[in-house]
Simulated assay, not measured.
Amino acid sequence: MAKNKNSIASVLSFEKKLVPSDGYMFGTTWDKRNEFTALTLTEKSVRGTISNRLKPAVQNDPLKLNAEVEKPNLQRVDTCSLLPEQDTLKLQFTLKILGGVQKPSACNSSEFKQSYRAAVAGYIEEHGFAELAKRYATNIANARFLWRNRLGAEHIIVQVKALNENAQQSWEFDATKVPLRDFSVQDEKINSLAKRIAEVLVSEDQFLMLEVTCFAKVGKAQEVYPSEELVLDKSNSKEKKSKILYSNNGIAAMHTQKIGNALRTIDTWYADFSNPEQSAGPIAVEPYGAVTNLGKAFRTPKDKQDFYTFFDSFALGEKLARVEDEHYVMATLIRGGVFGASDKE
């Protein structure tokens, strides 16, 4: 089928196929991991120092600088820590994996739907989601979802259970032995988990429910890091908190979005990955390869490396130049989103 801008459906969306719950945080000890307590948030009022970059007029005048330093930098913040006798963080969440990537959740073009379905069928026949499933399984096994809590942890164990009736199975991983940057690791347990994930992704309507429990030995009474809430109140009131952490039903927790972002951090196919000076390591699958903390998009339309450039060809039956580009397109569809082409110039 010839490529035609009007052939892309103007109404087109896909539901995400990796659906995590919030991650709930508990405190325990490494030697008695079956005894744990829910972690709660604590509010602190602290007096900080002035540390922001100052105007040249203040920098060059010692009297003005002293006057600025004397001003109290009062802050109210949320914190979360293990109890004095606890040395281990327990993080637990569930992950539902859905099939049905062959069918858009909304599409207003029957022609496009047929073309897209044929393209996905060809991908499944050739690759079967084996590569993507291996990468998702690796990110579960290496506990990437711990984010900052992973740093400085002496031991990390990840326990995974498949909860589907009549198809229960369990795996346990030493996350410190599973690399964060490389998805070529060969491990029977990772391959077994990946096989279960791939079986669902290739299906039309199956699902897999996983329960993920992670133990990270971070040290007695150490601070741990739930998700941070976005502060929408832009006022300068001294009474407002400058840092608000997330809790659900009184339990410190991590957002579903943050866990999902970690699971889909599998994109090593962007051009700068092999350049040590430019690479950000594996990045989360996004239509433009956006990495917000770096303020950079690694997949730009100008370089013809973005999702829409690839998708508009792939979905209309054209073969992409690299198999890695097909993996990237399918991973973005598993991520989900609204991808319709505007019918306005």
Rank of each mutant, 00 (worst) to 15 (best):
D272L: 05
E326V: 06
A133Y: 08
K134E: 07
I156F: 01
G152I: 05
K55E: 09
A280S: 14
L132C: 01
D312S: 15
K296G: 04
D182E: 06
S110R: 15
E188F: 06
Q206L: 11
I157A: 08
G336Q: 11
F310M: 13
E318W: 10
S274L: 13
L74E: 13
E125I: 05
S10A: 09
A121D: 14
A9K: 05
L63M: 13
I283F: 02
A162M: 11
S81K: 05
Y308K: 13
D312M: 14
C80T: 03
W269A: 15
A221S: 11
E211D: 15
N108D: 09
Q206H: 04
E345G: 11
S192K: 02
E345R: 15
N4W: 12
A262T: 11
A167I: 02
D61Y: 01
Q222T: 02
Q186V: 06
F14A: 02
T213R: 11
V329D: 11
T79I: 10
R76H: 08
T292C: 15
P20F: 03
L12F: 07
G281E: 08
K217T: 02
L230W: 15
K195R: 08
Y225W: 12
N108R: 09
V231Y: 14
T88Q: 05
T42E: 14
F314T: 03
T40Q: 14
E131T: 13
A252H: 07
K304M: 02
